[in-house]
Computed example of a mutant assay.
Amino acid sequence: MNIDFAKYADGLVPAVVQDFTTQKVLMLGFMNEEALKKTEETGLVTFYSRSKKRLWTKGEESGNHLQLRQILADCDKDTLLIKAEPKGPVCHTGADTCWSERNHKEDFLLYLEEIVKLRRTSNDETSYVKKLFDKGINKIAQKVGEEAVELVIEAKDVNRALFLGEAADLLFHYIVLLQAKDCSLADVIQVLKDRHQPK
């Protein structure tokens, strides 16, 4: 990768770090040639620290490393985009990102899937999701069937609000069923992508 380190007087190019999965921007650091080389060799994102005046591997003290997945250079070859997998909070404050954003996909269904996953293993006896999981796969599958029938019934009428309510109920219970089968929305999406491929 041909980066124009000489463009900056100190030889440090900005390196924007983005979560490979969620695509959230996690932090901004600076790399010199040596830091970039070490990042590529070790697979752990390494910067040049101006304050420490040395190479600094993210997480070297906290253990919250950034596992390298991809490096891209911008059109002028003077800024890096580092796509990585964070192994814990990225900011020194303990926040997910240096902008205090939660590091999750903006896709609400994927967020909801994470909530279902957390509730499945929670100790909260009042949680509807936990109660469903405690009743087992037969009850969960039965709920999906009931919600599907209710959606079909509402589809025959003209009440949009009731139809959407039943659609939401079905989708929610479908996510619960996927979790019960140790599958995810991503697994289903991959099947659809595979089917979509030209023959």
Rank of each mutant, 00 (worst) to 15 (best):
I189A: 14
K143R: 13
K156G: 05
A148F: 07
V90Q: 07
K139S: 07
K193T: 08
N2F: 08
E125G: 09
A141C: 08
L68N: 00
M27E: 04
K38W: 04
L28E: 15
D74C: 14
R195P: 02
D194N: 15
A73T: 15
F163S: 01
A186H: 10
K53F: 01
K37I: 03
H65F: 15
L171T: 13
I175H: 01
K130F: 09
A73S: 15
G136R: 03
L110F: 14
H104R: 11
G43Q: 06
V17L: 03
Y48C: 02
D78N: 15
L171N: 09
G145H: 06
T97C: 04
K135F: 04
K117H: 08
E106H: 13
L36R: 05
L109I: 09
A180E: 15
A84W: 01
I140M: 09
Y111T: 12
D76H: 14
S49F: 04
P198E: 07
L12Y: 09
A35I: 10
F20N: 04
E150L: 02
N159L: 08
E101H: 11
K87S: 01
V144Y: 06
C75N: 12
E41I: 06
L118G: 03
L68P: 00
K58N: 10
Y48T: 05
K87D: 04
R69P: 00
V17H: 00
Q67D: 11
I137Q: 11
G94Q: 04
K131N: 03
I189C: 07
F30Y: 15
F172C: 01
G59N: 08
G88N: 14
D124F: 09
R160L: 14
K24I: 13
V144K: 03
L177S: 07
I175Y: 05
G59C: 12
Q70I: 02
L177K: 10
P86V: 05
V17K: 00
L132D: 00
T79L: 08
G145D: 11
A148R: 01
N138M: 10
F47I: 04
G63M: 06
C75M: 06
Y111C: 02
K7C: 07
D76Y: 10
V116P: 03
K105T: 14
K105R: 15
I175G: 03
D76N: 14
V176F: 02
D182T: 06
T97D: 10
H65P: 00
V152P: 03
V116G: 08
K105N: 09
D107A: 11
D76R: 10
T126N: 13
K24C: 07
L151Q: 12
L192T: 10
A155D: 05
P14C: 13
G165D: 12
V129M: 03
A6T: 15
Y174D: 02
K77W: 01
Q179R: 15
I137K: 10
G165P: 05
A95Q: 11
S49Q: 11
V191D: 11
V144M: 07
L132S: 13
L151W: 03
N123V: 03
H104N: 12
G136A: 09
K131S: 03
V16R: 00
Q179T: 09
P14A: 09
K105W: 10
E60I: 11
